[in-house]
Nucleic acid binder design. Structure first.
Lengths: 216, 216
DNA sequence: CCTGATGGAAAGACAGGTCTGTTCACTTGA
DNA sequence: TCAAGTGAACAGACCTGTCTTTCCATCAGG
């Protein structure tokens, strides 16, 4: 929960040829464990968690079932590991992109929606894995909700810091408002299969942030 | 898609003791078909669609399995019927509440978030069934996505009409912006189990709408 | 009033398949 | 040598969907 400072360090973009991929499932898997995580991530995100069976996962991963159960105690544990890996990869990508943006805090917050748009425009965009997981396991499995909480806390903390820099009246309220816009853009773009909802959200955010300090 | 006028007629609130319930699963089921729909709706929404088996549904409904398959061709058909029934009940409740609001179009749009807050505050709030269904069946079952599209079109049409009344520049853009806020509030409130996200969204909407016409 | 037909639903067995998770003998590469 | 992985079989539970049998309420004809 104090997580933001301790999160994945911002990648040194210049050190690598290209920015890391937001999609963990596309990272080149080296170990058997990574192959399983990668295959499971792809299948979970595209076909749903319950609808994806262990046999399908190992077939895609090209590993034996015993190997899967050597690395993960159960399917639930695998789901949690996938969310953790996918969340970490996404945050590395997302905050890495944001870290390259310079300018006033308002502009950096608005840049959030430009980065989101790139995410939405990916042909493999399938919504936020955490939102989808909470939707599927509404009541059961509190560990999944907890993982989603941690993930969302990263964004909230980043936005709150920016809001404090903006010297607005109630930075936490402002951060929550932007979080709502981000969640809404994610869902709307997923449903309509239209990345431009990121720009609709950006438009709202721009007017909102400008309206917060009319006497600027 | 021209759907708004043709949707469920606004209920005559004064004719009934209380407003209809947003939750179809709580409507008193009369026929066997309604008992099945009601039980399935409750279970689907709380435990997920794939995770809920036919046997669990008929046990809760108190009906026989043959009865279920007499009324619904398959589990998928039952899912679609549940979404239709739940969506219709929700829209009757939601637009019924909105129909009671008088005032400027801006105020009526802001009232959306007050109604949402009441929805979120219900102990049985489980998010939007359509958002959850699309999250679970990301790629499969286009009928479910189509049902979600129809459902969302109702709100968009309502918001677009209000935006036109407001005489804003680009009413469709404004309506999409509010849709994003609504979707975001639904998801954020579901994740945090905190209905107050409706008011965070309302705060953003208020500043946004005010900022649209600074020369009012 | 009584009798018998009809049709919807209950109860539950059943088929055929899939699910998760276990086990074990064998292989491979460091 | 030895740890890790493979392939395959297996158990037991659960899944969807079908089918048969029994029950019961309603209604028609007498």
């Amino acid at each position: 929960m104090t997580a933001f400072d301790a999160r994945d360090p911002a990648p040194a973009i210049s050190d690598t040829e290209s920015a890391p991929d937001w999609n963990f499932a596309r990272h080149a898997p080296a170990t058997a464990r990574d192959k399983i995580l990668s295959a499971a991530s792809h299948l979970f995100c595209h076909n749903g968690f319950s609808a994806t069976g262990i046999d399908t996962i190992i077939a895609r991963a090209g590993t034996a079932k015993a190997t899967l159960y050597n690395h993960f105690a159960s399917k639930d544990a695998l789901i949690e590991a996938v969310l953790e890996a996918e969340g970490a990869a996404w945050r590395r990508w997302f905050f890495g992109r944001l870290g390259q943006v310079r300018g006033r805090p308002e502009d950096r917050v608005l840049a959030v929606f430009d980065v989101l748009r790139d995410w939405f425009a990916d042909e493999n965009y399938f919504g936020c894995p955490f939102i989808n997981a909470v939707a599927e396991f509404e009541t059961g499995n509190p560990a999944i909700r907890a993982a989603a909480d941690v993930h969302k806390a990263h964004l909230f903390t980043w936005l709150k810091a920016a809001a404090i820099e903006m010297q607005v009246d109630r930075p936490e309220d402002v951060a929550r408002g932007i979080v709502v816009l981000v969640d809404g853009a994610i869902v709307a773009a997923q449903h309509a299969r239209n990345p431009e909802f990121a720009l609709d959200a950006k438009g709202v955010a721009a007017v909102y942030l400008a309206g917060l300090r009319p006497a600027r």
